[in-house]
Nucleic acid binder design. Sequence first.
DNA 1: GGCTCATATTTTTTT
DNA 2: AATATGAGCC
Length: 724
Amino acid sequence: MTDLLSGLNPQQRDAVTVDGSPALVLAGPGSGKTRVLTHRVAWLIQAQEVVPHRIMAVTFTNKAAREMRHRIEELLGGRLRGLEIGTFHAICARILRREADFIPLGPDYVIYDTPDQLSLVKQALADLNMDDKRFPPTRMHNMISRAKNELIEPELYRSESYFAEAAGRVYERYMELLVANNAADFDDLLMRTALLLAENAAVRERYQRRYDHVLVDEFQDTNMAQYSLLRDLGSGHRNVFCVGDPDQSIYGWRGADYRNVQRFEENFTGAETILLEQNYRSTQVILDVAMAVIDKAPGRKKKKLFTDREGGPNVTLYESYDERDEAQFVVETIAGLVATAEANPGDCAVMYRTNAQSRALEDAFLRAGLPYKLVGAIRFYQRREIKDLIAYLRVVYNPNDSVSLNRIINVPTRGIGQKTLGNLKIWAEKRSGTLWEALDALARGEDSPFTGRALNALRGFAQMVRGWREVARELSVPEVLDLVIDETGFHDALDDGTEEGAERWENVVELRNVAAEYEGLNLETFLEEVALVSDVDNLPDDADAPTLLTLHSAKGLEFPLVFIVGLEEGLLPHQRSFDEPDGIDEERRLLYVGMTRAQDRLFLLYAFRRTVWGDNAISLPSRFLDDIPEELLSGNVPLRSERTTPAWADYKRAITWESDAAPPQKAAQTTTYRPGQRVSHAKFGEGVVIESRVTAGEEEVSVAFEESGLKRLIASMAPMQILD
DNA sequence: GGCTCATATTTTTTT
DNA sequence: AATATGAGCC
């Protein structure tokens, strides 16, 4: 039996052994909060003799849940049975299936992902005869989602504006459609569970008795619904243990509210607050840089993080020419450090603000012939062919899921076009039944307005689905998949001889492999797993290759070497954050989260110009860079005091000036280069000037290089020798 | 009914 | 740049 408390510092030990009162652990990055959580669960089981199934532990990702279970099992030296551990969404999904009697859904409800949700919002708009140009489905969906996260039901949704009033009507119809489809969206999982516990005393008390202890990780990123759930679960025994860090709150856009930390202190009076300030991850230099950035956040409770990893190499700040150059620097640096055995490829992570930025990086890795691991981007389960097959499985499981039914009724094409489908919907409405009920009636030979080809196509499809439903219970998930693929001619329709077709078929094979791993599990469990997996969940940790991921998905992870790219105005902070109330601050915290992932080395990069939407634009270094003391930086960017031709400093003034005063005039009015001149560039070699003009105060030269083709360069950035 | 080509529109971040 | 939608043609 291991001593659970040895090897913990005094604060960690206090946290692990909190007894008989609620606890709030404010844990800085790298302060061992995962350790505290796992040791506490183990301590409860071992020292307090709490039965595992009376403990609920909530994590932020499924991967974190798996790892935590694994670590606790290691600590206790045995398998844990019954410990309830998972994300809020996963735990709620299970509760709702069990308590389906109390909600307007059957226990066989399906979970809709974002695209499903969006198509249902469009349907709601259509039903209400509302124009989707004036009421964009994404915005409507956003407002609905926000309401749900705040536990506001349609009938309570009050409008302050015309637009919000419209959203309220869409919300109401959207909910009706979800119920009709026997479906729940992500937000429903939380809202329905939270409301059930809040409104039904019997159910609430049952769950209060069921769990003696509730532990929550990443507490700063909980929303109202999640908090309400937590309060109701914990109000009896008050054994609620929350771990979080307001400085790492980065999910405000999804309804997370770090003020839940204050609410917790109010609702759970007498809660013990424990600060974990010692960082065991990063060097002092990295920590100082990160703290310099976060300290500028307004209205923040200052925490003093410290580490015994004194000093460390300076943080590298690199200004690249464009996103290609940026990616190349990353790849070359990694390759260099690997060559000198200073790092393993798997020690490195490259982080960015938007998924779109991964492209340039992937290109550079591919060109260098180096493998990499990519989190997110085109998510596997979002690929068309995968979604199609999942939709088939969902229809087999729950044929009243009309979103899935609509998706596959003519995929692969089987002669059921817009017109026939429209008629089918009209007929279904006339019979006041669902789409599937109409199809089912057709298959049974009921009289219908359909004749000829349309009738045959519809009946054939319906009979095929009926056939699957009859045998599905006897078959494993991969067997059902095989049946669907076989009878629909999915392979031939997909693998059309093109490279893309072959790739899509590969994905189908991969899905079948995934399904095969669920051998023994039923369709219900498979569909639920698939609906709730996140990208980080699928991160393979065996491959020794650099990881490419967004700053958001980097939360909770750590790497010896971290590159953060695209530190530019408009990207980080992102353009879309500018008009959000807490927007810029959240961007700042996002950068802080990224920086504090690094253990040994941190590289910060920005590009002088970047292609955005196929347009090449000059970019400005991120304002956050200004907050970093220069003595902690090295790289290719001159000190602020020594900059002689800092092109961007003037742009910055031009863009950030507040008054109506004209932006400062720049020196460059005439061009140094003329069309037809032969020039030589250090990197691109020799070429001929095609054009040269002054844009935004900078001379922009287009040169046709013999080796490297046509380039557009900024004269002051990339000086060239004139050869004639 | 289905396919091809042209136009529009897009990208924050995720369960 | 890449994808989604829509018009027009077979």
